[in-house]
Simulated assay, not measured.
Amino acid sequence: MSKKPILFCTQCGAPVERKIPEGDDHERYVCTACGEIFYENPLNIVGTLPVWEDRVLLCRRAIDPRKGYWTLPAGHQEMKETTRDGAARETQEEAGIDFRIADEPYVYLDLAHASQSHVIFLAAMESPEANPGPESFEARLFSEDEIPWDKIAFNSVDKILRLYFEDAKTGNFPFHYIERHKQGKIS
């Protein structure tokens, strides 16, 4: 179900109601006048894990939720945008760095409980310079022992960072797929 309920039909303006449409098996918003069905789909969160030498770049959020906490440059994928293009756009908007993005995803977090999919690509920074946009107070490079673990914005970011530093020990960065059905720490 939407976080913000749908109240009126976008086709005719009549009120909508929640019900299972004929031939369906999920409750949906359905227009009470014209019968338009409104399908709700998961959100794609796309971004990168930028790397410079042995450090990773994190952005300190200037927006809610979790304002003031550290995260990876990531956000909502736009319509008619590939996950890779969206990840590159979000990285540029939030971190303002020069980088080369990997061809394939590094981590895919399938978070059913949140109706979200997080697709994260590795990004090789061209220089250590960052020029964060308005959604970030600052962007900074951290080695593993410098990361403010108690100030990481999201459980998913914590997991991605821990995967990265484990992989860095071997120099092998395989694709990681993680599926979660319930809220809580991603192990």
Rank of each mutant, 00 (worst) to 15 (best):
Y39S: 11
Y39R: 10
E40P: 00
E40L: 04
E40W: 02
E40G: 04
E40C: 01
E40I: 03
N41F: 13
P42T: 01
L43T: 07
I45P: 01
V46L: 06
V46T: 08
V46F: 02
V46K: 01
G47A: 10
G47N: 05
G47P: 11
G47I: 11
T48I: 08
L49F: 08
L49D: 07
V51Y: 03
V51C: 01
W52M: 08
E53T: 06
D54F: 13
D54I: 15
D54Y: 05
R55P: 08
L57G: 13
L57M: 14
L57P: 12
L58H: 07
L58Y: 09
L58M: 12
L58F: 09
L58K: 08
L58D: 07
C59F: 08
R60D: 02
R60L: 13
R61N: 06
R61M: 09
R61V: 04
R61Q: 10
A62T: 11
A62V: 13
I63A: 02
D64W: 01
R66I: 05
R66C: 05
K67E: 14
G68W: 07
G68R: 05
Y69K: 09
W70R: 00
W70S: 11
T71Q: 09
T71D: 14
L72G: 01
L72C: 02
L72I: 12
P73G: 03
A74G: 09
G75E: 02
H76T: 10
H76C: 02
Q77Y: 00
Q77N: 14
Q77C: 03
E78L: 14
E78Y: 14
M79C: 04
M79K: 04
M79F: 08
K80T: 03
K80P: 00
E81V: 04
E81W: 01
E81A: 05
T82C: 09
T82W: 03
T83L: 02
T83C: 11
